[in-house]
Structure formats: structure tokens, C-alpha cells
């Protein structure tokens, strides 16, 4: 389940007003989310949650649901 916090970060970075994210939403379905802006999304997420992804974790992401799962597991392991 994609949280409102993550939705907000993505919308802010991509300068979108609204987009309905599902777990299986992929980057190419979201306007403006291309391979270049992907970097901005990732760094914004890292900053907001104060986490640091491993390259491998990012490269195997398939959809937004995967991104949410990695964030959740990072946050819970940090506790």
C-alpha cells in the first residue's frame, strides 16, 4: 500500500497535481517520471526518510509498491 507521504514526495518532485498510485504503478505510467527524473525521486525519498538505498535495492524495483516495501523495510530495520 503506497502511503500518502510517498505519494506526496513523488508528486512534488515531478510537479504533478494529482495522480492515483497503485502498488503496481510503474514509472513509465506516471507523466514526467523518466530515467532522469527517477534520480530526483530517489534522492528526495532518501532525504525525506533519512535513509540510504543500496544500488541493488533500487535496480530491482519494478513498481511503486516495491519502492514502498523497500522504504518500509529500511525504516523498520533502523528502529
Amino acid at each position: 500500500m503506497v502511503t500518502d507521504q510517498l505519494k506526496k514526495i513523488i508528486l512534488d518532485v515531478l510537479k504533478l497535481d494529482e495522480f492515483e498510485f497503485q502498488d503496481n504503478t510503474t514509472a513509465d505510467q506516471v507523466p514526467g517520471w523518466d530515467s532522469l527524473s527517477h534520480l530526483n525521486v530517489i534522492t528526495a525519498v532518501e532525504k525525506e526518510y533519512s535513509i540510504r538505498f543500496k544500488a541493488y535495492e533500487l535496480l530491482k524495483l519494478k513498481d511503486v509498491g516495491d519502492l514502498q516495501n523497500v522504504i518500509n523495510s529500511k525504516l523498520s530495520s533502523a528502529k
Binding site: 530515467s35 527517477h38 534520480l39 530517489i42 534522492t43 533500487l58 535496480l59
Partner: peptide
């Protein structure tokens, strides 16, 4: 993508 992630702290210069 792996390079871009490696250079991500450089922002647009990284891209």
C-alpha cells in the same frame, strides 16, 4: 542506471 545511482549525490552533474 547503476552509474546514475552511484553518482546520485552529484545531482544533475551525476546524470
Amino acid at each position: 542506471k547503476p552509474l546514475q545511482i552511484k553518482f546520485r549525490d552529484l545531482g544533475n552533474w551525476g546524470n
